[in-house]
Design a protein around this nucleic acid. Sequence first.
RNA 1: GCCGGGGUGGCGAAACUGGUCAGACGCGCCUGACUUAAAAUCAGGUGUCCCCCGUGGGGCGUGCGGGUUCGAGUCCCGCCCCCGGCACCA
Length: 812
Amino acid sequence: MTIEGDEPRYDPHTIVDKWLPVWDELHVHEPVDDDSLKRRYVVDMFSYPSGDLHMGHAEAFSIGDAVARYAMMCGYDVLHPIGWDSFGLPAENAALKRGQDPREWTYKNIETQAESFKRLGISIDWRTRLHTSDPEYYRWTQWLFLRMYERGLAYRKSAPVNWCPVDQTVLANEQVIAGNCERCGTPVTKRNLTQWFFRITAYAERLLDDMALLEGKWPDRVLTMQRNWIGKSTGAHVDFRIEGHEVPIRVFTTRPDTLFGATFFVIAADSPLAAELCSEDNREEFAAYVEQVRKATEIERLSEGREKTGVPLGRVAINPINGEHIPVFAADYVLADYGTGAIMAVPAHDQRDLDFARAFDLPVRVVVDTGQPDPNETGLATAGDGVLVNSGSYDGKRKEEAIPAIAADLQRDGHGEAAVTYRLRDWLLSRQRYWGCPIPIVHCDECGIVPVPEDELPVVLPEIDDYLPKGRSPLATAEEWVRVDCPRCGREARRETDTMDTFVDSSWYFMRYCDARNETAPFERELVDYWLPIDQYIGGVEHAILHLLYARFFVKVLNDMGLVGFREPFARLFTQGMVYYRGAKMSKSRGNVVDPQPFIERFGADVVRLWCPFLGPVDQDAEWHEDGMEGMSRFLHKLWRVTLAAAERPPSARVDTPLSRKTHRTIAKVSDDIGRRFVMNTPIAAVMELVNEIGRAPDDAAVRFAAETAVSLIQPYAPHIAEELWRRLGHEALWVAPWPEADPALLQTDTFELVVQVNGRVRDRMEVAADLSEAELVARATASPKVQAQLDGGQIRQTIVVPRKLVNIVVA
RNA sequence: GCCGGGGUGGCGAAACUGGUCAGACGCGCCUGACUUAAAAUCAGGUGUCCCCCGUGGGGCGUGCGGGUUCGAGUCCCGCCCCCGGCACCA
């Protein structure tokens, strides 16, 4: 298997077999943690072990590795870790389908994937390796949960929550995509359940504010998506007294200026408040309505243009600003968990309220004159600017003056105040499934909710026989595990049987990487502060508001706890597009995965690593195809050929030849593309161009230098062939070789091709000296016979000179 | 409906701040070399139409219609189509 000597042909496999063990043995991909070195922390979003890697992974990790290797060659001490997000539903579903233990299935897949990463030659520091389903890891997930609990950031409440009837578990809002379950696509329904939440809403403002730190460093669309998701709106809280009810009911409105136009009052039908307020006479009708609402899926409920429905509650609310009595309804167009779950309805100025008013024949009173036609006639609510009417002493005020004025008056009179509300809701973290991190809580009849003492962590996931989801956690069937002495009073108590959402596991893994084997803490602050924030985080757009928001929240909490010294985890984010195949996103669950392995066997890892990013701009979606991978293989053969030929030539010192100039331009282009622009297809194309030039100019004095440079520049993408060719060029290890630097003097040319235009159309081009003055350039241009022919005696009205580029002559 | 992204050759795509006849690089296709032949490999050509035997020359071309400019794929206005996100959030 020796590769010494002069094989005429490039054989990818012998090269991979030669260098992989060398890299491993010499630990070349582990940082040296030298304080004097500039450092880079490059993280690819970790993988979910639902099977072997597919081309989507291959693309993502090719990009990440190119960034990591480029940074290494630029002299950075690079930490490039790896791990697996190994808890989660698919393992459990697969286990059910095959009668296999979720553990076995998961860890087998992890091994397969790890092997694939190795075969691809990704520059990973394997010492960081972690799996979120290892007790050594989830012990600290539980520990963090308890710290959150102590701070009141983890709590239990009964609320209407999203329920997936197929997966038989609750879901966070972020996991409901257009009314469907994120994982299985089933329409989601609502249920009133007691569940665990993280108080992410307490951080809404800071999550929003700190986006200023990310501006320009994260893709705009991700920031926009997060901003929309948090959904801040400013307005006022207004308290309405309900006749025969002691406590006033508070509503939120963005339009306190329309308070005089409130002609009825609506409470979310599925909120406890509606049931509480319902009068005896209306109870039957109300119960039937709530039943109907509960059964509707989220998708039906949200569909636009749907008839407004609701029932009267037989109650009267009193408008605090004018004492007016208005009827109270329960309806499902008001959401129980946004704002206060109740609204004042102003049909003239809100389309939804107007639709309801027309369905129930309720009065519509215009209180802001916008100059638009009367909503009573058009059926269209008016929302624009205008002047207040029918509003007592506020008449004549403009909308924007009225909003603060009314809010201030409400506050003065104790009926409300200016307020801010967010669309973001608390993060529902408990799941009624087996394969997840157990929530470290004990329920005691005497003491209530009792946290598991720290020294008893981890609460190990018990082994059970039946994983089948039944609407309550399968953990409940592990009776011996559930039964436990209360840590506080010692009486018999029961363990919490819900497990955590996997997004909890993935909210802190990138910190654990820095201290993956720590047995006394989740990580040491010093180590984490050394590497984080992550310099470059790379992953799919699909996590724009799930993982990326949750992780930001976690880091802010840890920062408040003094466990880390930074507020944002990901200084720079790159989101690659998704890889599609046969019209759908490539994924195991859709059954349209393309396995890289056969291609690695046929063409070698380098070709696969080059081909994925070459498919198109990596930030955009791409349709997978393999026509062209062959061409990539041809390119490497050509690189091999021209480099071995160049290796025969004497070393080329700094010479000024066409090829050396091309080489320097290529260095500048590739460095800029990878380092600044973050594009991956064009640097590969640029190296191809250079290699073509080398092939065409085998006798150029700079040929050896050009070949050496091509080998260096391709290293981030094709490290194996690069390493081998580098040695054959007579050098030591490529991984310690510096990234080539472009010589500015050789980027510029002494002459350039001057383009001569007449009236904006190119008529001639000529090679001229670079140091000619503008006047001289114009003189040369006008002297051209072709230009003269075009001028045809006409008057020259203007000449435009673009330095080093063109002269444009404008004639009448 | 609202918010993003996009529409360029037979195909994937380049053109980064308006400036070298737009189309780099790769695929495909065509031609040639090698071969008895084919495959593989290598070299060259390849937007489109018109005049011309050819050399050469000219016109038209970046979803559609306008505009700004000496000059527009790039900027502005108005449309059409595709993809993604959000969607009764008061």
